[in-house]
Simulated assay, not measured.
Amino acid sequence: MQIAKGSRGRGIGRWFAAEVINTLSPGVGFVATYPAPMDDSEGLARKRAESKLSSVWSEIGFEPLNSDIMVLELNLITLDEKLEGLRKKFGAL
Rank of each mutant, 00 (worst) to 15 (best):
Q2C: 00
A4W: 00
G6I: 00
G11L: 08
I12A: 09
R14I: 04
W15N: 01
W15Q: 10
W15A: 06
F16W: 05
F16M: 12
A17P: 03
A17Q: 00
E19C: 06
E19M: 07
V20H: 11
V20C: 15
V20D: 06
T23Y: 15
L24Q: 07
S25P: 06
S25A: 10
S25C: 09
P26W: 01
G27P: 02
G29H: 10
F30C: 09
V31T: 02
V31H: 01
V31R: 01
A32D: 13
A32L: 13
T33Y: 01
Y34Q: 09
P35K: 02
P35S: 02
A36M: 06
A36F: 11
P37E: 11
P37K: 07
P37I: 11
D39E: 02
D39H: 05
S41E: 08
G43R: 08
G43W: 11
A45L: 15
K47W: 03
K47P: 00
K47V: 04
R48C: 08
R48T: 15
R48A: 05
A49R: 05
S51N: 10
K52M: 08
K52W: 13
K52L: 07
L53Q: 14
S54E: 14
V56G: 06
W57D: 07
W57Q: 10
S58T: 12
S58N: 09
S58E: 13
E59H: 15
I60F: 03
I60G: 02
G61L: 08
F62D: 09
P64M: 08
P64L: 14
N66K: 07
S67N: 13
D68N: 11
D68K: 10
D68E: 10
D68F: 12
I69W: 13
V71M: 13
V71P: 13
L72W: 08
L72F: 12
E73L: 11
E73P: 07
L76I: 11
L76Y: 07
I77S: 00
